[in-house]
Write a protein that binds this DNA or RNA. Structure first.
Lengths: 203, 203
DNA sequence: TTTCTTATCGACATTTTTGTCAGTAGCGCT
DNA sequence: AGCGCTACTGACAAAAATGTCGATAAGAAA
């Protein structure tokens, strides 16, 4: 009558692999189930390991949170830095903006940012300014625009990309529209608005 | 040697007052400390009552969460509905937009929205579509623009207002700029972009 | 004053979540 | 094969969070 619980053989990973496995599971939980589910038992179950294994690699559940944040931040920064903006044309800009918006929505970066903001951990993003400056210099160096103006533009682009990434889909669907509508509208308005802003500045 | 713990006389409120007191405390915790601190003991302590008192009025801690969400939503809707847009002028629009942005940042509505989004409770906002439709009809009835276009515009405005409300201040300060810079930039871009969009539509 | 209602509370019980520890088992190395 | 290292695990302990219950007291009404 007893059900045989065929015990799986242990999987022994390298520490790096194991950490990556656990963090990937945690990231999945964060984005699909929300921050509440980032509990020890949940993470361990999602990763297919014992609770003690998670603690073995990260010390505490908070260690998991910290490591997850840092991993997601690093990935996002890498993605943003990879955006190409070789020419100063409308098309090139539109592409860059689209890529930026997608970077913030694809890897759930907006959810990460919201989590950091809500938990007052935004201070973790100490390198944001440096990244923005690097982008300003490396991507916009050929444009004859003052650097602080470029920074203002990037500020508004990032803010809007975050807003769209976090709320765009839900809001669009609430209004009975296709889920990408908010993003499309935001991109249109942003492109047109920035063009006008530049025109005004030149006069 | 024993320290006399002068026991306070009980405060006996009406059920409505007591609920309001508890919810206000919870709201303070949500916006100032983050959602993690919306625990029974934290809420009770902030409200200055015993844990059991909170449960007496709300049943469970989840009941507190639900009631808090509903209260904040109602307050926000009221604020948005109160926005005036009597004329179809640039100035009038700018004022309305500014008011909208402020509504989303003042009462921490963006944090509420982010909380709902992260916890997959956005479905609670069932009346968003109705509110948008009401606003479309009551505020824009005198403008000769199709209703679905107005809805698209409101979609982008709300999305951006949320983004600015949630991330604007932090991002601005990260880049070493005054905290309202993101909002100002967003408003500028939004006004210019919408004007252009309208111009394009007319041609 | 006395009575009645019920908001309030402290103490306790239950459940949930985190963390500890001693032993087990993969895997490389000799 | 035998050995050493350590990733891994289950069982248990500790802590934290939620919820229950009977008693108390504030205020209204008789």
């Amino acid at each position: 009558m007893s059900i045989r619980k065929s015990k799986q053989p242990r999987i022994r990973r390298t520490p790096e692999e194991s950490r990556a496995n656990i963090l990937s599971s945690a990231e999945r939980l964060l984005t699909e189930q929300g921050p509440q589910t980032l509990r020890l038992a949940d993470v361990a179950k999602e990763a297919g390991v014992a609770n003690a294994t998670v603690l073995h690699h990260f010390g505490t559940i908070d260690g998991v949170h910290t490591a997850l944040m840092e991993r997601m931040i690093a990935e996002l920064v890498e993605k943003v830095m990879a955006i190409e903006l070789t020419e100063d044309t409308e098309v090139s800009r539109a592409q860059a903006l689209t890529t930026l918006f997608e970077a913030f929505e694809q890897k759930q970066a907006s959810k990460l940012a919201a989590w950091l903001e809500l938990t007052h951990q935004a201070g973790r993003l100490t390198n944001v300014r440096q990244v923005v400056r690097d982008v300003t210099r490396t991507k916009f160096h050929h444009q004859n625009v003052p650097e602080d103006v470029v920074e203002d533009v990037m500020l508004v682009c990032i803010t809007l990309a975050l807003g769209v990434g976090l709320f765009g889909q839900t809001l669009s669907e609430m209004l009975g529209k296709p889920p990408s509508r908010a993003k499309e509208m935001a991109l249109s308005v942003l492109m047109l608005g920035l063009r006008q802003l530049e025109a005004e500045r030149k006069s």
